[in-house]
């Protein structure tokens, strides 16, 4: 069972506790669209004791405002003991630059993991 959310050129596909982002995230305030979806899924995943997975590999572009809700989620997960994994395309230059820096939120026990693939 999967659910798809669309906002402009950005598509979020939610399946189990995985969110896959595709297209381009260029909205004025993407947090309004992405934030609630991530927060809800994070709560569900935490309640089920599962890791929430954010898959950016198929994302073509995102503006800097898109990073904010992701950082906030990672910060929240780190504080509250939740599990979040971010996967990105390590061969894509922009993805590597943007997402590898998020490693500062990673935890040693891999509760929070940032993976370039």
């Amino acid at each position: 069972m999967s659910e798809t959310f669309q906002h402009g050129e950005l598509k979020l596909e939610v399946k189990d506790t995985t969110v896959t982002l595709t297209g381009r995230s260029t909205a004025r305030d993407p947090g309004n669209f992405i934030g609630p979806i991530l927060t809800n899924l994070y709560k569900q995943a935490s309640a089920a004791g599962k890791a929430m997975i954010l898959d950016f590999r198929k994302l073509d572009y995102m503006n800097s405002s898109t990073i904010t809700p992701v950082i906030r989620l990672l910060h929240e997960a780190k504080k509250s003991g939740g599990k979040v994994t971010i996967t990105y395309d390590g061969k894509s230059r922009w993805q590597d630059l943007s997402f590898s820096a998020l490693t500062i939120f990673a935890t040693e026990d891999k509760r929070i993991e940032i993976r370039g693939e």
Binding site: S100, A101, T103, I104, A106
Partner: peptide, 9 residues
């Protein structure tokens, strides 16, 4: 200190 691993890499 959160940056340690990233900077080491």
């Amino acid at each position: 200190f959160d940056q340690t691993a990233l900077l080491q890499r």
